[in-house]
Design a protein around this nucleic acid. Structure first.
Length: 329
RNA sequence: GGGUCGGUAACUCCAGCGGCGAGGAGGGCGGACUGUAAAUCCGUUACACGAGAAACACCGAAGGUUCGAGUCCUUCCCGGCCCA
C-alpha cells in the first residue's frame, strides 16, 4: 500500500494527521472541526468503538456529531468478534489508502496509543494469524505451573525479554513465548528492529490534554451521564445476546463492571464507582504512553481560548509541515 | 449526665498474641508496553536523620505497670451508637 500511496504523492511521504489524548478531553470534537477545516476523513483509533451496539459505554461519536465528516473503523465488528492491533492495522492502512486516493487527508483520531503506533511506524507483526490453540496452551501451562516457573521458560529461550517482562505479567510472557515458538527467534530481537523504524508518513502527532483535575472531573461526570443515558440497558442487551466477560469487547471499561452488577456481584453504585476509577487510571496510562512517544505536539486546552483557536493553531502546524495547503480565496 | 464502641505512617479504610524503627487494602503519583492495549504488569506514597550496634520521630494526649507498651491500667480530649 505504501508504494501506491507514494506514487500518488509523487514520491513524497503520504500525509497523516494524528489526534489523540486521554479519554474525555474532547478528541472527537476537535477532530471533526479539524477535518471540516482541511477536508479530511477520520479514522477512529479506538479499540472499542469498532464494535456495533457498544455506543454509550464507548462514548461513541454520533452521526450528528460527525457533522458530515466521513468516519472509518467505527461499527465494523460484532461484539462477539475478537479484535487486535494487527486487525486494526490492516483496516487502518486500507482506509488511509482509500482516503488518500480520494485526494483527502487522513486523520487518525482516538485514544488507543498502541494502535496509533502500529500504523504510524508501520510495525511489522509479520507471520500468520493468531494461533489460538498455541496461545491457549501457553495460558494453560502458565496456570498449571505458576507464574514464576512459566517465566523461567521464557528465561531459557529469550533471556532479554525475561528481564524486561516481570513474571507477574503473564499475558506478555505468553506472547513472548508464543513468538519464540512460532518464529524460532526471540521477540526481543524483533522488537529491537521495529523500534528503529521511521514513520512512513509525513505526519503530525497531536496530543490534546488538559489539567489532571479537569480530566478526572470530566470522567466522573461523563460516567454518571452514561449510566443515566442507558449504559445498564446497553450492557444488559449485550449480555442477553450472549456476550460474556471473556470477549475482548467486554474488556472495555464500563462493560466489565456493569456486567458484574448484572451478575449480582455488586451494586450499581459500586459498579459505577469502579467505572470512574478505572477510567481515571486509564487516562493516566494514556498520558504515560504519549509522553514516551517521540515527536508529539502537546496541546494544552488551557492555552486556547476557544475550540476555534485550537483548530487554527493546528492548521498552522499542518501548513508548516506541508501537509495542508489552504485554498486561495 | 450514664453506658458502650472506637481514635494506627498523617488522603481514606482497616490489621496488629507485651518485643514494631508498625503491616495491608484503596486512592494519589510515576513507569513499562511492538498480535487481548479501555488489556496486562511494575514501582512509589509523612518530615528529619542517616547506614550506625547506633539515634530523632513514631499508633489522640498525659501519666502508670513492665527488662520492654500501639498492645495492659488510670485520667483527659475527640467521634459514633444506646440510655436518660
Amino acid at each position: 500500500m505504501t508504494d501506491a500511496v507514494l506514487e500518488k504523492n509523487n514520491g513524497r511521504k503520504p500525509p497523516l494527521v494524528i489526534i489523540t489524548g486521554p479519554t474525555a478531553v474532547g478528541k472527537s470534537a476537535a477532530s471533526v472541526l479539524l477535518a471540516k477545516r482541511i477536508g479530511a476523513e477520520i479514522i477512529s483509533a479506538d479499540s472499542m468503538q469498532v464494535y456495533r451496539g457498544m455506543d454509550i459505554g464507548t462514548a461513541k461519536i454520533t452521526p450528528e456529531e460527525m457533522a458530515g465528516v466521513r468516519h472509518h473503523l467505527i461499527d465494523v465488528l460484532e461484539p462477539e468478534e475478537p479484535f487486535d492491533v494487527v486487525r486494526f492495522q490492516t483496516l487502518a492502512r486500507e482506509a488511509i489508502r482509500q482516503i488518500i486516493g480520494r485526494g483527502k487527508i487522513p486523520v487518525l483520531a482516538g485514544g488507543t496509543g498502541f494502535y496509533i503506533q502500529a500504523v504510524l511506524y508501520d510495525i511489522d507483526f509479520s507471520e500468520e494469524e493468531t494461533d489460538h490453540s498455541l496461545r491457549r496452551e501457553l495460558e494453560e501451562t502458565a496456570a498449571r505451573i505458576g507464574k514464576e516457573a512459566f517465566h523461567d521458560l521464557l528465561k531459557e529461550v529469550d533471556p532479554e525479554s525475561a528481564i524486561a517482562i516481570p513474571a507477574g505479567n503473564v499475558k506478555r510472557v505468553v506472547r513472548a513465548l508464543e513468538y519464540y515458538r512460532k518464529n524460532g527467534k526471540p521477540i526481543s530481537a524483533h522488537n529491537q528492529e521495529q523500534r528503529q523504524k521511521e514513520s512512513v508518513y509525513n505526519s503530525v502527532y497531536f496530543v490534546l490534554t488538559d489539567e489532571r483535575e479537569k480530566i478526572y472531573a470530566r470522567i466522573d461526570q461523563r460516567v454518571d451521564e452514561m449510566i443515566r443515558n442507558g449504559l445498564p440497558e446497553e450492557v444488559a442487551a449485550l449480555r442477553e445476546r450472549g456476550c460474556t466477560k471473556e470477549m475482548i469487547s467486554m474488556q472495555g471499561i464500563g462493560y466489565r463492571q456493569i456486567l458484574d452488577w448484572l451478575d449480582g456481584e455488586c451494586t450499581l453504585e459500586e459498579a459505577c464507582e469502579r467505572v470512574k476509577k478505572e477510567t481515571r487510571h486509564f487516562a493516566k496510562r494514556q498520558l504515560t504512553w504519549f509522553r514516551r512517544e517521540k515527536d508529539v505536539i502537546w496541546l494544552e486546552k488551557k492555552d486556547f481560548a476557544s475550540p476555534d483557536a485550537l483548530i487554527s493553531h493546528m492548521t498552522e502546524i499542518l501548513v508548516q509541515k506541508g501537509i495542508w495547503v489552504p485554498e486561495q480565496a
